[in-house]
Structure formats: C-alpha cells, structure tokens
Simulated scan of single mutants.
Amino acid sequence: MAAPCPLVLRRLQLNPAVVSVPRITTVVDGTGLAIHLLVAGAVPGLWLTSPP
C-alpha cells in the first residue's frame, strides 16, 4: 500500500518527502499514545497487588 505512494506523488509533481511527513508524525503519535495507554492500564494492577 505504501510502496506506490512516492510514484503517484512524483507523477502529481509533489515532493514525496514533504507529503509523507504528516503521515509519519501521525503514526509516531498514535504509537506513543497506544504505548502510554497500555502502560497506564497495567500500572494500577501492579500497585494493587500485596507483597507475599
């Protein structure tokens, strides 16, 4: 899916590097948010356990 994007953008006279920056930023932000939520969901369970 991502492989033909630079070819299509070049045909449209657009710089693929400039156009792909928002997409990369969105993926990085989404990944960071998912990791943050996974850790935030796991930490309260760790604090509620009593030591043996």
Rank of each mutant, 00 (worst) to 15 (best):
M1L: 06
M1S: 08
M1K: 02
M1P: 12
M1A: 07
M1C: 09
A2F: 05
A2T: 04
A3P: 10
A3H: 08
C5V: 08
L7N: 12
L7V: 08
L7Q: 12
V8A: 13
V8E: 11
L9Y: 07
L9G: 12
L9A: 07
L9H: 09
L9P: 12
L9E: 08
L9S: 11
R10E: 12
R11A: 07
R11L: 08
L12V: 05
Q13V: 10
Q13D: 12
P16Q: 01
P16D: 04
A17D: 12
A17H: 13
A17K: 10
V18Q: 13
V19A: 15
V19R: 06
S20N: 13
S20Q: 11
S20D: 10
V21H: 15
V21T: 15
V21R: 15
V21F: 13
V21G: 15
P22A: 05
P22C: 02
I24Y: 12
I24T: 15
T25Q: 14
T25G: 14
T26R: 15
T26Q: 14
T26M: 15
V27C: 13
V28C: 13
V28I: 12
D29Y: 14
D29A: 15
D29F: 15
G30A: 04
T31S: 15
G32I: 03
G32M: 02
G32A: 05
L33N: 08
L33A: 06
A34R: 01
A34G: 06
I35P: 05
H36V: 07
H36A: 14
L37D: 07
L37V: 02
L38Q: 04
G41K: 00
G41C: 00
G41V: 00
G41M: 00
A42S: 05
A42N: 05
A42M: 01
V43I: 00
P44S: 00
P44H: 01
G45H: 03
L46G: 08
L46W: 10
W47K: 06
W47F: 09
L48E: 09
T49K: 04
T49Y: 09
S50G: 10
S50A: 09
S50F: 09
S50P: 12
P51Q: 01
P51T: 05
P51S: 05
P52H: 00
